[in-house]
Nucleic acid binder design. Sequence first.
DNA 1: GAAATTCATGTTAGCGATAACATACGTGAG
DNA 2: CTCACGTATGTTATCGCTAACATGAATTTC
Lengths: 362, 362
Amino acid sequence: MHVIVNLYSMSVKKQAKRQVTLADIATLAAVTPMTVSRVINASGYVRVETRERVLRVVREMNYRRNGLARGLKRQRTETIGLVIGDIANPFSAELSRGVREVLEKRGYTLFICVSEHSAKEDVQAFESLADHRADGLIVATRSCKSGDERLRELIDSGIPVSLIGRDFRHPHADLVSADNLKGGYEATKHLIDLGHERIGFIGVSLTKSLGLRRFQGYQEALNEHRLTLDESLIVGGGGSDQMPGYSTEEMGFAGMTKLLRLKKRPTAVFARNDFTAIGALNAIKQAGLRIPEDIAVAGYDDIPLASHVAPTLTTVRQPTREQGRLAARFLLRRIEEDRERPREEKTFDCELIVRQSTAPAK
Amino acid sequence: MHVIVNLYSMSVKKQAKRQVTLADIATLAAVTPMTVSRVINASGYVRVETRERVLRVVREMNYRRNGLARGLKRQRTETIGLVIGDIANPFSAELSRGVREVLEKRGYTLFICVSEHSAKEDVQAFESLADHRADGLIVATRSCKSGDERLRELIDSGIPVSLIGRDFRHPHADLVSADNLKGGYEATKHLIDLGHERIGFIGVSLTKSLGLRRFQGYQEALNEHRLTLDESLIVGGGGSDQMPGYSTEEMGFAGMTKLLRLKKRPTAVFARNDFTAIGALNAIKQAGLRIPEDIAVAGYDDIPLASHVAPTLTTVRQPTREQGRLAARFLLRRIEEDRERPREEKTFDCELIVRQSTAPAK
DNA sequence: GAAATTCATGTTAGCGATAACATACGTGAG
DNA sequence: CTCACGTATGTTATCGCTAACATGAATTTC
């Protein structure tokens, strides 16, 4: 009634050559596969001579163990999946370094999946990793409805998960984040303390990404100092669901250009991240204005470049590598000690780094 | 004689809860596992009602197929591994996007491994991916002895491999690259044509990384125009094996600072990549000199930022995403059509992008 | 109306590894 | 001398899935 033909398999012309197996090694070394297994995994008793004979054959045959078979039998692959939204982002890079630092020591392999900020690929990444039976997942992508749903199902079904800066909670998934609300608040307060009253924000759309914590901090600081939030000063963040991360300089440039065209333009701007801020810097320079004299600029993340642009950029630093490390530790604890343990949560403080791009308002 | 105890397994306290299997679904849907398999994989004949009944149970039980078992049986995991040296590099990001574009359409999952520019981790990445029986590998890390050796063994043992910009050849591994020698030549020639005679190079060490093609192009251009290569103008690239990619601005800054201290300083510099160039720009500005009037600067890669710094950066663009796409296509052809096909090689042309940071010598 | 074909399912065997148990030999204790 | 234990292997039975083949029923063909 339903004919569904697998066209794919028809296109495979040549079979992979058969890989060397444990049994092959066993035959050549005149032992049983079990003994070879013991040698490979350095477990149990093996006579030195036997061991060496086996190892010789292993090397000669260029044997590589089959992780699929091994994982299937052992119900464990010693593999962790990390899901990030944007590979080009220095934030992801630092995060992954922190994660690897911890995992490597404990003998786990890290596979990274990139969602390119798309909800569909977010879900796909989770499923691929779950299908391939990663022992656990570290998820550092931004929250989205379908992703959160899928994630909940996976966690419910028993996969250990650590979340990084994701706005989603589950009783059995640990959560690591930085206090970006406070970070956004501090940066904005810094500008206010310098005497600025018209402070723009570059990188959110008022219709969409209002969940952005650093933007909420911006609003909070304004409120607290009785400054009204002028919607014409909020720019950028528009466009598709598919915005590749690397175009954020573009967004900063375009956003700032828009702000400069206002009749009453801001005397300071706070950018969603450093790339955006750098784009803004450039737009200001091209307009023939000076930073920070005419317009002060603050960014977020303290990417390495922030201290290498002119003027150097005032920004907010979050302990990125530490977040990666802790997320990995949480995950390993859950995997190796107690998969049912209640959620653990840790929020890191951010640090305002004042550099040349901000100064008192004229 | 040899007691080797596996301490690891002793530390595992709680077992993962048993995952739902095909057999469980089969029982609940009152069919055999084979029928469930047919439904899941949309292959063969299944009555509509049966199909729906099975799918209902699958959803209710939140079933996820076991990729290990599946891969083991099918001798194919529909998984490709990409090995990159530096996750923070926009070059890697573009590359991976190109690769994904192609793979996704064909139903393959991409797992990324990062070697952090370390030879040891390069090898580890190959082995992890081989162990987990990725159907093929795309390798975009820089060549190193141990890595090349391991790679040769893996290719010999039948794993399909595509190389990107790696200085290593094997009769059964395809190779995609950009003509960085010519790119380096063009950039240097551009500076020479502008009348520069003292042209520095930032980012190689004369004792080590002489294999860098773009540096060879630099040398070639100098030779051809009868300019002597002044070793005091070659800086940077030193330090450990472990240099994280993100510190290249640092390298550019430090290298340029060194050049500025020379009694006869260069009137132009060519940097190994754009980050290095941006570091150099900053060093020049901080020294109170102007770009390009006092010193001209050229970079390499045309990262998005290059057109968003002040002054905008003259650089060399290579078709990065195309390289990723082609490497993926080569790999799929090898996997699905003919694993024994002779090596295919493609070198893309680079393009000199002249912007504000270069101008005629005074 | 018998043979051929399509549809719908089931049965069997094994992918490559290892946990758990079984076997057998030495060696020192009692 | 026997028992117990440490040492060094081997045997068996899966892990979860699917290729290949087998089995019938329904439908079509000549």
